[in-house]
Simulated scan of single mutants.
Amino acid sequence: MTPSTSSRRTLVKRGGAALAGLSVLRLAGPAHAFQTPTGGEVVPWLDQPEPNPVPEAIVRQLDWERLDSWLTPPDQFFVIKHYNEPALTETDWRLEIGGLVERPMTLSLADLRARARHEVAFTLECSGNTGLPFFAGGVGNAAWAGAPLAPLLEEAGARDGGIEVVFWGADAGEQTRGEVTITERFARSMSLADALGSDNLLAYEMNGAALPSLHGYPVRLIAPGWYGVANVKWLTRIEVRDSRYQGHFMARDYVTIREEERDGETVWTFTSVARDRLKSAPAKVTKRGDGYQIMGAAWGAPIAGVEVRIDDGEWRPATLGEGAGEEYAWAFWTLDWGTPDPGEHSVTSRATAADGEVQPAPDDPFLAAKTTYWESNGQITRRVRIA
């Protein structure tokens, strides 16, 4: 199925079945709650997202026009639910580390809190964000804190042959395979080498407070640089395996299908959504006196710069603000627009990463070859009317 033949009904069905919450982060020093001045009147975008047809899955989205804090408050942070919301308590919760390990472990929340605490500012994005007409706010930035994962895996000691680590959540739901319906727990996996990355956290805090229930209380995985689906909420088990895990959210859903030409023949590739991609978005336009300012955010890689294009004009450099230089957190940017002509205008942004990568246009061949909505990181254009 190609984008031109993919029906809206199919997109809605996929959106309800599969969106997930969180992605990008880095172990660094303590994060600070930078504030961006937001004085002035917000000029609303003309192209508002369509009504959300799956509120049970996309529970909450970031409201771009309210964005005024570098750290997103939990009650404004996007929320995705694939299955139920588990009712876990600190008293009863335990985390098992097992499978192909020399020393299986069972840890309480107190055990994790007794270990070295690390904090990272990390921008989490759902891999389906901006891939559907009703889903444009699946991103947010928070300071996540908890116990580093790698030392625990090293203490458990992976046995020879262990190559994969599966992270199991407490949430579960029904999945149908042909004529068989099963109850499947949410789970995602990564290679043992990736799991041993020094930035991965077993997070129990968000912005200095205990994780809210909808964000995975009491503990979730935070995997820097990975899309939200990899950051498993309500974490209860970590399992080392000797084979690749092929559960629903690894091999069936969150899979990008891409058309490629090889030696004159069409080849279809299937890749599980994994690491975040470079992206930026205009957040809002504000009027201050007779002048206007455009503000936005860029994330997915260390940001070197952001450019903005008004209508069909030349690209103009924006000024980076809070978050500039961060490894895994978004950078805010602004552009003084001056006094634009009255009428409707389009505003497009594109980010450049520290390694020189440039956010692609929507018609970039690499993006155009996708037949699924995951990993849609093309340049974003918004429309506004100046009175």
Rank of each mutant, 00 (worst) to 15 (best):
M105G: 01
L109Y: 10
R117T: 14
T123E: 03
S108F: 02
G138E: 00
S108Q: 03
H118Q: 13
R117Q: 15
F135H: 04
E125T: 08
G137N: 02
A116R: 14
L107S: 08
F134Q: 05
S127T: 14
L112A: 05
G137Y: 03
S127P: 10
A121P: 06
R113F: 15
N129R: 02
T130I: 08
V139Q: 09
S108L: 04
L124D: 11
G140M: 00
L124V: 11
E125K: 07
G131S: 03
E119L: 09
G128F: 05
L132Y: 13
G128P: 03
N129I: 02
F122R: 09
G138C: 00
F122T: 07
R115I: 14
C126L: 14
L124Q: 11
L112M: 09
G128E: 10
N141K: 08
V120A: 02
A121H: 08
R115H: 12
M105W: 00
G138D: 00
E119I: 12
C126P: 09
V139G: 06
G140N: 03
F122C: 11
A114Y: 07
A121E: 09
G137H: 01
V120E: 01
T123I: 09
A142Y: 04
V120G: 03
T130N: 13
T130K: 08
L132K: 05
A114C: 07
V120P: 00
T123M: 05
T106M: 12
D111P: 04
A142M: 06
T130P: 04
L107C: 09
R115K: 13
R117E: 15
L107K: 06
A114V: 08
M105L: 00
A110V: 13
F134P: 02
H118L: 10
F135S: 02
G140S: 01
G137L: 02
V120K: 00
N129V: 01
G131Q: 01
G128K: 01
F122I: 08
V120M: 04
F122A: 13
F122G: 09
V120L: 01
V120F: 00
S127Q: 12
L107G: 07
F135P: 00
A110G: 14
F135Q: 04
A114M: 07
S127H: 14
T106L: 11
G138T: 01
V139S: 07
L124F: 12
R117C: 11
S127G: 14
L132I: 08
R113H: 13
R115L: 15
R117P: 09
L109T: 08
G137C: 04
R113S: 14
C126S: 15
T106P: 07
T106E: 10
S108E: 00
M105Y: 04
V139I: 15
C126K: 10
S108M: 04
M105N: 00
A142C: 07
G140Y: 01
A116K: 12
R113V: 13
N141D: 11
T123Q: 05
T123Y: 02
R117W: 15
P133V: 11
P133M: 14
E125N: 06
G137W: 03
E119R: 11
L109Q: 09
A116C: 09
L109H: 10
E125Q: 13
A121T: 13
A116F: 10
R113K: 15
V139M: 15
V120D: 01
G131R: 00
R113D: 13
T130R: 13
N141G: 05
G128Q: 06
A142I: 03
S108P: 04
